[in-house]
Deep mutational scan, measured.
Amino acid sequence: MQRVNMIMAESPGLITICLLGYLLSAECTVFLDHENANKILNRPKRYNSGKLEEFVQGNLERECMEEKCSFEEAREVFENTERTTEFWKQYVDGDQCESNPCLNGGSCKDDINSYECWCPFGFEGKNCELDVTCNIKNGRCEQFCKNSADNKVVCSCTEGYRLAENQKSCEPAVPFPCGRVSVSQTSKLTRAETVFPDVDYVNSTEAETILDNITQSTQSFNDFTRVVGGEDAKPGQFPWQVVLNGKVDAFCGGSIVNEKWIVTAAHCVETGVKITVVAGEHNIEETEHTEQKRNVIRIIPHHNYNAAINKYNHDIALLELDEPLVLNSYVTPICIADKEYTNIFLKFGSGYVSGWGRVFHKGRSALVLQYLRVPLVDRATCLRSTKFTIYNNMFCAGFHEGGRDSCQGDSGGPHVTEVEGTSFLTGIISWGEECAMKGKYGIYTKVSRYVNWIKEKTKLT
């Protein structure tokens, strides 16, 4: 034993070699072989497995989906700052455009905790909710729209109204504003409101030439003092309507412009014939205590009207009353817009006519005020429907199939267009061939041609 100890002390290297040989010859039971080890760690190889990531292109799944990435790591994937920024906006807080917040056709661009709407022409605001041009839906104005110097929408209202708090709607500024039905039992019968379409306001006024200088022999019209197929109006439903009495009662109609003036057809009036105007009328054979009678003290036909040349060209006249009318729910003026808007309103496509005229061709006159909704007829169809001249200051309205029309005794009465609950004068009943005849239409004086003249002559002093 002493000898062994001496050998170990003198030859430590020998001992180490012996131990190493023993270990190498022993069977290893701690580690699995290569094949079995792979069965336990069965993990798919990654895209760049075996390579240094710093030297390969980034992978979106590896960089940002398996674990949260930084902007720089995302930049490695896209290799483009702009594309990385677009991805980053949604990656950080989701897609803010998912709810489609942009209105009126706006395009949404996502941002971090926010979004941006790219608005089409005519709109602005956070969600493109603000109209900035009158060309689109009248700028959301209830009545009139004008573009300011910086191309912003400025709404306005006709006389007797003021802008509401929203700067879009119009509200009454006087007790009985024009064009409004205020009798409670008839307010439910107000005709369907007309909503502004998209309009090209630059070209809204037709490029028409008034044929002022045409000389033409007097034409022989049949029954051209021209509501057939209409309905009984309720008291106060058309408070701007008046009836004219002269040699015979209810020979023509008219509309209240203001307390002192009536507008009617020029062919209705004769110099030297006494005319009485009755406002607030409903049943011409009954006294309903809503009527107001006034005498006409002055007749002003349009300066281009000449019955000797043509009885229905420039067929418009103004009547001055001896005493002002007292405005109330049964006696209310009709609204008159400017030339541009009167023309736009007419193009809405349908209007209402009213009167006490004959209820059928050569038949009896109506006792109760009649009204009828009539569609506008395109000019080409209008011209083809008659052998008589249709001037540019006239328009056609009615039904091709016949059966409904204005008729004798309705002449001078109103053709009105309702705009968001307020009625505007767009025409004056003038003439036609018979009444409600198939293929024939009622012919009306186009008020847009005469609004400046009306307003100039009827100013209240």
Rank of each mutant, 00 (worst) to 15 (best):
R3C: 14
V4I: 12
M8R: 15
A9F: 13
P12F: 15
P12I: 14
G13D: 04
G13K: 15
L14G: 04
C18R: 03
L19N: 02
G21E: 04
G21A: 13
Y22S: 10
Y22K: 02
S25N: 11
A26K: 02
E27Y: 06
C28T: 09
T29V: 14
E35L: 06
E35T: 13
K39I: 08
I40M: 12
N42M: 09
R46I: 10
Y47A: 15
S49I: 11
S49R: 08
E54L: 04
E54F: 06
F55W: 10
Q57W: 06
N59W: 06
L60S: 12
E61S: 09
E61N: 10
E66D: 08
K68M: 12
K68R: 13
C69M: 04
R75K: 15
V77F: 06
T81V: 12
T85A: 09
T85P: 09
E86K: 15
F87S: 15
W88C: 04
Q90L: 07
Y91S: 10
D93C: 03
D95Y: 08
Q96I: 08
S99F: 09
P101L: 03
G105E: 04
G106A: 06
C108R: 01
S114K: 04
E116Q: 05
E124M: 04
D131A: 04
D131V: 05
N135E: 09
Q143P: 00
C145K: 02
K146W: 08
A149S: 09
A149D: 11
D150N: 11
N151I: 07
V153M: 12
C155H: 01
T158W: 02
E159K: 06
R162A: 08
L163E: 02
E165T: 13
N166Y: 02
N166C: 02
Q167P: 03
E171R: 07
E171A: 10
P175C: 04
P175F: 04
F176V: 08
V181L: 08
V183G: 11
Q185L: 10
S187E: 08
K188L: 07
A192K: 12
E193P: 15
F196L: 14
F196M: 07
V202R: 10
S204C: 05
A207L: 11
A207G: 13
E208T: 15
L211Q: 12
I214H: 06
I214G: 07
S220C: 06
S220I: 14
N222D: 14
N222T: 09
N222V: 06
F224W: 13
G230C: 13
P235I: 08
P235Q: 09
P235N: 05
G236A: 07
Q237E: 05
V242T: 03
V243A: 13
V248H: 13
G254T: 00
S255N: 03
S255I: 08
I256S: 01
N258D: 04
N258I: 00
K260R: 13
I262V: 13
V263I: 11
H267L: 02
V269S: 04
T276A: 08
H282K: 06
E285A: 07
E285Y: 07
E288Q: 07
T290K: 05
N295Q: 13
V296D: 01
P301F: 11
P301K: 12
H302Q: 03
N306P: 02
I309M: 12
I309R: 10
N310F: 04
N310P: 03
Y312P: 03
H314E: 03
D315S: 03
A317F: 00
L321G: 00
E323P: 04
P324A: 10
L325R: 01
L325V: 03
L327Y: 07
S329T: 12
S329D: 14
S329M: 09
Y330W: 12
T332D: 01
C335H: 01
Y341K: 06
Y341P: 04
N343V: 03
F345W: 05
F345Q: 02
G355E: 04
G355C: 08
G355F: 13
R358C: 04
H361Q: 05
R364S: 12
S365V: 11
V368C: 05
V374S: 03
V374G: 01
P375N: 15
D378R: 06
C382K: 02
R384W: 04
T386R: 09
T386L: 07
T386G: 09
F388H: 14
T389V: 10
I390N: 14
A397S: 04
H400K: 12
E401S: 11
D405A: 08
Q408D: 13
G409P: 09
G413W: 10
E418M: 13
E418Y: 10
V419L: 07
F424S: 01
L425E: 00
L425A: 00
G427A: 02
G432W: 05
E433G: 11
M437I: 11
K446A: 08
K446M: 05
K446W: 01
V447I: 11
V447T: 06
V447K: 00
S448M: 03
S448W: 02
Y450I: 01
V451I: 08
W453N: 01
E456Y: 09
K457Y: 14
K459A: 07
